[in-house]
Design a protein around this nucleic acid. Sequence first.
DNA 1: CGTTGGTTTGATGGTTCTCAAACTAGGTGG
DNA 2: CCACCTAGTTTGAGAACCATCAAACCAACG
Lengths: 236, 236
Amino acid sequence: MRNFVARKLNNGAVLRESDEARLDELVRNWRAMPARTDIISQGDDPEFVHAILDGIACRYKILPDGRRSIMDLLIPGDFCDMHIAILGRMDHSIGTLTPCRVAHISRPEVEDLLQEYPRIARGMWWSSLVDEAILREWLVNMGQRRSDRQMAHLLCELYLRFAAVGWPEAFSLGLTQEQLADTLGITVVHVQRVITALRQDGLIELRDRQITIPDIAQLMEFSEFDPDYLHLPPEH
Amino acid sequence: MRNFVARKLNNGAVLRESDEARLDELVRNWRAMPARTDIISQGDDPEFVHAILDGIACRYKILPDGRRSIMDLLIPGDFCDMHIAILGRMDHSIGTLTPCRVAHISRPEVEDLLQEYPRIARGMWWSSLVDEAILREWLVNMGQRRSDRQMAHLLCELYLRFAAVGWPEAFSLGLTQEQLADTLGITVVHVQRVITALRQDGLIELRDRQITIPDIAQLMEFSEFDPDYLHLPPEH
DNA sequence: CGTTGGTTTGATGGTTCTCAAACTAGGTGG
DNA sequence: CCACCTAGTTTGAGAACCATCAAACCAACG
């Protein structure tokens, strides 16, 4: 089992063996969570910082009328809540979408990590800035593109993010259409129509409710995807 | 002339006189910039960190087809590019929307500030996290609300953000309809229709192309505005 | 006094939502 | 093993929202 946290941070900082060893230790405390379960809820002031080791989670808010808005997808290697120590309470929730393995690290351990492991601290800093850049690109995506391009753009991003942590299997996405709808801000019905359209154009493939990408370059061109905002090292 | 940077940071940290004095010094280097001018352009690796002292600026990207997407509005007290030292190159541009006074602070000065003034450093850290929270709320706003609510929500946010730095004049917004359109991801024509509708409902007032808010509570209710995400101290 | 940038208004069309219902696959209990 | 139930997917018809295109209007400015 590889350490996806270390792999992710390695994109923004050059870690040494001692760094990776420490991360391996910290990541040893984890628990399995079923799909659709909150890791942290809005209003919490949690004691632990969490990292996703396996599965897909999301940041989300529930609107007054009951709709859910997903503002970020968290994949293996992603931290959930590094910021909570400063802001105090959570202004949104974090929950699993698929079954997940979630590591929990105590606040003192995080403090120690940031103080004593400067390369890791730099990687964390880099990581949170990339998260912000992703958020900005989502804003562009939702504001300016039609929903088929939106969907394609999201898939391109996930493809690259999974690749950046060296996801072992070929990329395949097992989210439900409702989860995709809440992410893109469109209805389930329309997600369905967009997916069938993309499938008919040969841009994606669908087997057992899993989306795969036959030709990433083609999908990137279709969605005007520019990977610049992910700030990945050149080889990706 | 008050120091809006200090006022803003005071919302997230308790500054002392020495802190404010240092900020006063740093902010002394500024230049006036006309409207519609880039402070930093995409691809730059700038030498200075900038802060808005007066006027309104924005983060934006230009899409391949020429459209502009505004992803953040920067008001007096806001820093533009604290993150650039880590990420290297800018993945978006920052430009003025109205005439601005912009302070520029050298990288060594910023380093010193973060090292030697821990309360300021904490305020900066808080500030960047709030920026991220604002970005998330914009995503919710654009994804889930109709354009009249979107507009109202944006106006509520700006009202509170200006209030949080103690903006001297009563709130009034002097952006063009095109600038608002690029921010909300809708067309100029539709901005026009939304504005007249809000005006007819008495939710906003319009004089000399300046939008004012007669009753903020009413506008907040209309747009389902929950100020929680701004993480302001209770008095606001 | 023409030019320019911005606002306002109208008509039409496309994208996406809403409502409604059928269908599929997996799981559970009789 | 089958009947039922549930969550998720698929399809259709009509309406709402917003975009597009086009043109008039207005104020500031040289």
